[in-house]
């Protein structure tokens, strides 16, 4: 499962899905995760990077990442394969 290729992200945290016309916004940490998803980082890699940069327990972030990914799925921003 990966972030759809054609989705545009901006520095201000805006996301545009040209396939649906929907726009989204995210907070800075959300944008950071999206960038990593675009770079095809694995979930484990993302957890390592975020946990080393931010003041958060790994398993706390794991839960939050799971929730974030489920939202991306709900918003149809992930490729299902």
């Amino acid at each position: 499962m990966r972030f759809k290729r054609n989705i545009a992200t901006s520095e201000a945290g805006f996301i545009f899905n040209p396939a649906s016309g929907d726009s989204f916004s995210s907070n800075p940490i959300g944008s950071e995760i999206l960038t990593q998803l675009k770079e095809d980082k694995s979930r484990q890699e993302i957890i390592e990077v975020i946990a080393s940069r931010y003041d958060v327990e790994k398993n706390q972030f794991e839960r939050d990442l799971e929730d974030f990914m489920s939202q991306l799925r709900d918003y149809n921003l992930l490729d299902e394969n």
Partner: peptide, 9 residues
């Protein structure tokens, strides 16, 4: 769309 994103976000 950027204008819409800006006022909206």
């Amino acid at each position: 769309v950027g204008e819409f994103q800006k006022i909206s976000g």
